[in-house]
Design a protein around this nucleic acid. Structure first.
Length: 553
DNA sequence: CGTACAGGTCTA
DNA sequence: TATCTAGACCTGTACG
């Protein structure tokens, strides 16, 4: 496939075409002409892969100018993956500006200018970096998987930019009605809404503390203890265990205060414009390969306010999520046929019950979560021997990942994303967490930190491979949605509008909703085959065609 | 007066 | 004798 490398040169762009025969041809164009050049090239029959330093620096402006890109190589994201992968020869990756690539950060989506001034990326040579990456890939003992990972990560970067561009349809009027119904009318600057004010009065009266500010955990804890309640913190879950007249009002107050501060009127003003909630997603933003987000708390939008996410008139949301993604991924990557058999059921936990591994669904869930998170105590710990007997390969894989982490070894996902080395800052953090300063250095604390790192590596291999499945799913889905046809930009055709680790929201014209359901499922099958080949592990989806996000699931 | 951390709550 | 993975982001509070 033809690769076309883009490089900024002041107010111009250098375009270098790399043909399969190794020849290269370069042209220089003014930056204003780039969208037209890209659009023309994308419309031509020969497929092309754009190679650029960083999608966040190129794609938002292209989208704004009406140019959509089918494929790219994001050198920044690829660099991070290769630098940490145990299957990339680091000697091949090191060049003059490696430190610059190591340090390169994505830019915020807020600025749509194609060329931010004084960008550190301008000091880097993308052609040289691309050559190094291709060399490392060619020499890798896991070349195919690593190449798939780089392609999927780059496709994710395109998806992320497009989701910020299109936004998630959001009805401010619905959101405001919801706030008013729960909190009362919007208060004038500074005041508490009426409902909170009333609850505050009840709380103060019930505790005999007329000046209490329940927003201060320390103050609240003292007041509760003075009222004779045996409580060590003010978490809702702890308070719910208590029997005292103040508790219902206090729990309601905490819930509504959270709504007000996290997703109240000021959230609405800040993050919703022109009927769209626009946040920015950061592919690869989490060490495991999951996406992070910045702005508006996109990855923790409470279900309480999801009724305000409403498809446009004549459009629908197609909401799809994978039930029990991570245990299915674990079955696939360990080639555990017994667990894959359980995964044939649409509810994997019920499949485990049917297979005779455990007595109840609750036990199955507890046991699997314990296996993936490293819970060794309590009920999930007691489940482990039975699970190990029944699913030796699956349990063996996570146990080995935990032991490797405890030994200080580096673990990796199925496609070759490497975990951080335990000598890095992350291990320091684990040490600090397990080690109160006054007892620093004791053997027990070191053991605790080692086990904490083992839990991290145990979870890393599963969560990280789950993230790879989701990336492959979205990358394939994005292309299938585009091929459903229509005209215009992604916003005017069926498009991905939101992504939450194992769930996607597609915004589509109503008459195409059934087609979207079909391609969402087809893309899930493709992702399973890409990762696990012929090994028979299913990824059944829960799919709903709805007007509001809240109506799904 | 601005920054850093603690405590809490939301997500998968 | 016990909640264990990954995050974002809010308020209150301590600190320099």
């Amino acid at each position: 496939m033809q690769r076309v490398l883009l490089r900024r040169r002041g107010s111009a762009v250098d375009i270098t075409e790399h043909s399969d025969d190794g020849s290269a041809a370069a042209t220089r164009i003014p930056v204003e002409e780039l969208p037209a050049v890209v659009a023309e090239r994308e419309a031509a029959p020969a497929p092309v892969r754009w190679v650029w330093d960083d999608t966040t620096r190129w794609y938002p402006a292209l989208l704004a100018a009406g140019a959509r890109v089918e494929r790219c190589t994001d050198l920044r994201l690829s660099h991070v993956l290769l630098r940490r992968s145990p299957f990339a020869d680091q000697a091949l990756l090191v060049g003059g500006d490696t430190a610059g690539w190591d340090a390169l950060q994505p830019v915020a989506a807020a600025d749509p200018a194609l060329f931010p001034p004084a960008d550190p990326a301008d000091l880097l040579d993308p052609a040289a970096e691309h050559r190094r990456q291709q060399a490392a890939l060619a020499a890798s003992p896991r070349r195919d998987r690593l190449a798939l990972l780089l392609a999927a990560e780059s496709a994710g970067a395109l998806v992320a930019a497009e989701m910020t561009y299109t936004g998630l349809p959001w009805r401010a009027d619905v959101h405001e009605r919801l706030l008013t119904a729960l909190l009362g009318p919007r208060p004038v600057a500074g005041g508490r809404p009426a409902v909170l004010e009333r609850l505050l009065g009840e709380i103060r009266a019930a505790l005999g503390a007329p000046l209490l500010n329940p927003d201060s955990p320390a103050e609240l804890l003292r007041a509760l203890q003075q009222a004779g309640l045996p409580v060590a913190d003010t978490r809702s879950w702890s308070l719910a265990q208590l029997d005292h007249p103040v508790i219902p009002a206090l729990l309601e107050y905490k819930k509504l205060m959270r709504l007000l501060t996290a997703n109240g009127w000021s959230w609405l003003e800040t993050w919703v414009q022109e009927g769209r909630f626009r946040s920015s997603f950061l592919p690869g933003g989490v060490v495991t390969g999951r996406w992070a987000s910045t702005g508006g708390g996109a990855l923790s939008v409470p279900t309480l306010i999801r009724p305000a996410a409403v498809a446009d008139d004549g459009w629908r949301f197609v909401v799809a999520d994978v039930a029990q993604l991570e245990p299915r991924v674990l079955a696939g990557m360990s080639a555990d046929t017994a667990m894959a058999e359980a995964a044939r059921a649409s509810d994997l936990y019920e499949g485990m019950v049917a297979g005779g591994a455990v007595a109840s669904r609750a036990e199955a869930k507890l046991g699997i979560l314990g296996a993936m998170y490293g819970g060794t105590r309590g009920e999930s710990g007691r489940m482990m021997p039975r699970l190990t007997r029944r699913y030796p390969r699956a349990i063996g894989l996570v146990e080995e990942a935990a032991r490797a982490g405890e030994r200080g070894e580096v673990v990796h996902t199925l496609l070759g994303r490497g975990a951080p080395s335990p000598t890095g800052a992350w291990a320091q953090r684990a040490v600090e967490l397990g080690e109160p300063a006054e007892q620093a250095g004791s053997r027990g604390d070191r053991d605790r930190a080692r086990r904490a790192w083992g839990r991290f590596t145990r979870n890393f291999v599963v969560q990280g491979t789950g993230a790879e499945w989701a990336l492959c799913w979205m990358a394939d889905l994005r292309n299938r949605l585009w091929r459903l046809g229509g005209a215009g930009s992604p916003a005017e055709r069926p498009h991905l509008a939101f992504f939450l680790h194992d769930e996607v929201v597609v915004h589509a014209p109503e008459h195409l909703a059934d087609d979207v359901v079909e391609v969402v499922r087809a893309a899930a099958s493709t992702a399973g085959r890409l990762l696990f080949g012929a090994f028979p592990v299913d990824f059944p989806l829960d799919v709903a065609v709805v007007r509001s996000w809240a109506d799904a699931g």
